[in-house]
Design a protein around this nucleic acid. Structure first.
Lengths: 347, 347
DNA sequence: TTGTAGGCGTTATCAC
DNA sequence: GTGATAACGCCTACAA
């Protein structure tokens, strides 16, 4: 099938290419009848303009891209939906771009910016710190969303980036403190693999600080790292880790998992051993996913304010796009959503 | 920040643009030293080629796109991972393209094909029947994956499309028959909105046929359609629908939900009313998601052979790409994965 | 209101 | 092994 070009449509309609271009791009300076005739022909032959050629020629595009590292992360699923809604609500085009695990999101951003003449970029997930040189190369406004990433120092030039997130360390501290407040002293934690330098690290740090604050010794044997060779935040990982922990004979009354998916797996491991949540073992999660609400028992979790964060992400991005002065960081407070998975122990 | 082009790199290196092009594209006919020098400069200035220009000029690209309608569907999450792995394993580029709910996936495909010179397309989700005229316009091989879509009649020309899926109607029949075999007679079904013409329809059809086959009257009052204004396959939808059903006082011993997410919501509705699964109400799902395994009780579900389907999707696609004769349809058998959510009733 | 022509940044073809 | 140069398909001055 030979590819239809604008030239052939022009020939078919007996007009020049610019007239066809005007018609399909809704330019005002064209005779309505000519326009209609052209659009009819376009429909009839199902002509589809080549986007690469368009992007190449265009200088701007009213497109905002969301670069997400890990599309299948259920927490991102709700963020993506909200971001999309807000971007489209502002009459911008929304582009969702998946970033592979081993890819550098900044390089993808640089490439996509050139390719699509983006107006702005939202990073969902990804690293906490980036190559500052690359970051400075990024010529369009950007917002790190749900990850409290480092922003480049203000070198006198205008700010082009922002970060919208929760304070993972502080929220993890909050949850651990809550668990301690419920009377738990021996709290095991399911966290990312040992070398993790992202939220896994931060949430572990918060846990540790809370223990120390309350005079509880940090016990390495209660810190369970996920297997690096497996996907980290899955129910299967949580199940595996909690199973090993339960079978080890170590003493603990509570499992704190740094994601709800891990928590679900942990619960199942408890059940499979004929024990009860929270009767025998308490379990807490993190994120505030749907499943935490619908699991039985419902999971006590740290609920991230996804909707507000998405809204603020877009607000901040468009503030940057429009040159409005904007603070660089927006740290939201999460809150403990109490479920029925944590038992209060008489002190 | 002025955009760096290949011409400037050429000038910087004191060579012609074609030499730079050869270097960055790994062409053999270039002096290794020149190549190294150019690549160093490219790195140093962080030159990123413009993809639009590349795509415009290139005639082919070794790229396979996966067009997914509903990225956040957890069943697709595992399919996407497997598809990606297999595509990359064949040394092809993998592109994931989200299709909006109201968009026509075929139009997106047509556009993307022009834009990126695709070698092949995988459709994940979407409609069962497509505009045949559009389908014939599609000039590259394609596979409908997980949806048993109609293929155009062989009009003498070579086949360009295939479909890899389960038989939703038959599998739903199988599950319903299984539930009947467990002694259930009054089986409520949670299904898509009434006008659905996709898997919701097929799974409902299978349910109905099974009832009729076994001489059980089809009772409209036990058929619960999701609210069209809400997102269909969410735990919240399942919870809402099951709650209304439970509160209606209608008589039934089993809820069959056409997705695991709906089933989870249904279970929670049962629990919230102080009743038990499966003691008081049995619940069955569909898809075979992780959550069905890790829920408590684990959910009896129809397990789709995701891995095999993904593998076959890519195999069929590359058979089409390579011109190997290929059957058009690959229908996989699903299987009932028994959990603990369905009770056997003494007959 | 419409048509012609030049150029967007790259790759491919051809000389050298 | 290397360098001009002509496309790729579209948009947009500018001219008519």
């Amino acid at each position: 099938m030979e590819q239809l070009t604008i030239r052939e449509i022009a020939k078919l309609c007996g007009v020049g290419v610019s007239t066809v271009s005007r018609a399909i791009n809704n330019h005002p300076d064209i005779n309505p009848e000519t326009k209609q005739m052209i659009l009819d022909t376009v429909r009839q032959y199902n002509y589809v303009p080549n986007n690469s050629a368009r992007n190449l020629k265009r200088t701007d595009s009213n497109t905002v891209a969301v670069l997400v590292k890990g599309v299948s992360n259920p927490f991102f699923a709700v963020m993506i939906r909200m971001l999309e809604q807000d971007i489209i609500g502002r009459q911008y085009l929304f582009v969702l771009q998946q970033v592979e695990e081993e890819e550098n999101e900044l390089e993808v951003a640089l490439q996509l910016t050139k390719e699509k003449r983006l107006k702005g970029i939202v990073f969902l997930g990804g690293a906490i710190r980036h190559d500052e040189r690359l970051l400075r190369q990024l010529s369009v406004p950007y917002v790190f969303s749900t990850v409290n990433a480092e922003l480049p120092e203000d070198g006198g030039e205008e700010m082009r980036g922002a970060a919208v997130a929760i304070d993972d360390e502080a929220e993890s501290f909050r949850m651990t403190e809550y668990l301690i407040g419920c009377g738990h002293r021996r709290i095991a934690i399911l966290t990312a693999f040992a070398e993790d330098a992202s939220i896994g690290r931060l949430r572990l740090d918060g846990y540790r600080r809370a223990l120390e604050t309350h005079g509880i010794a940090y016990d390495e044997s209660l810190v369970i790292h996920m297997d690096r060779s497996l996907r980290t935040y899955t129910m299967g990982s949580g199940y595996r880790a909690a199973s090993a922990l339960l079978d080890s004979g170590r003493d603990f009354s509570c499992i704190y998992a740094i994601s709800d998916t891990l928590a679900v797996g942990a619960c199942k491991a408890v059940f499979d051993r004929g024990r009860r949540v929270p009767g025998d073992i308490s379990v807490a999660g993190f994120d505030g996913l749907d499943i935490a609400r619908y699991y039985e028992p419902s999971l006590t979790t740290v609920e991230q304010p996804a909707e507000e964060m998405a809204r603020e992400t877009i607000r901040a991005l468009f503030a940057l796009i429009n040159g409005t002065p904007t603070a660089g960081k927006y740290i939201f407070e999460a809150r403990i959503r109490e479920g029925a998975s944590v038992r209060r122990i008489a002190q």
